[in-house]
Amino acid sequence: MTDTLWTDALSAAELPTDDVMGLLVNGRDIAIYTVGSEVYATDNVCTHGQARLCDGFLEGHEIECPLHQGKFDVRTGRPTCDPVTEPVRSYPVKIEGQRVYLQLD
């Protein structure tokens, strides 16, 4: 049995309120989303247009790509409308104390 590796990504105080932000974590461009009291993470680059998702519009559990208006479910990374057809990678998130951790591998 292998231990799950969690990477310290940011302070919980830095989380946006019902919004998205981009950050680099261990050299990866990650988008962090808050929807109500939940926190989600995906790769930050759209699989269709190569735009940064943190520059898009978050509505509920969907992030809209700023380039071609394709959308992804931030909980799973699955595309929810055209022209996006390929999912974006999502990552498990946990909050312990005042820190936000991501499971990157």
Results as ranks from 00 to 15, higher is better:
Q50D: 14
E38C: 07
D29W: 04
P87W: 10
S37E: 15
E64I: 02
C81Y: 02
Q50I: 04
Q98F: 01
H68R: 09
R78E: 15
E96D: 13
R78P: 00
Y40G: 01
R75Y: 07
Q50R: 15
L102W: 09
T17I: 14
Y101M: 10
P66H: 05
R99I: 12
G36I: 03
G22L: 08
A41T: 03
L5P: 00
T34Q: 09
G49P: 06
I63D: 02
G97W: 09
E38R: 15
R89H: 07
R78L: 14
D105P: 12
T80G: 04
A41S: 04
T85Q: 12
H68S: 04
I63Q: 05
Q103I: 02
G49V: 05
L24T: 14
Q69Y: 12
L23F: 01
N26C: 12
T47C: 10
L23D: 01
D73M: 04
E14T: 09
L10P: 00
R28T: 02
T42S: 04
F72P: 00
E86N: 13
Y101S: 02
D18N: 15
A13N: 14
Q50L: 15
L5V: 15
Y91M: 02
D8E: 15
S11A: 13
G97T: 07
L10D: 00
E86R: 12
T2N: 11
P16T: 11
T34N: 08
L104N: 06
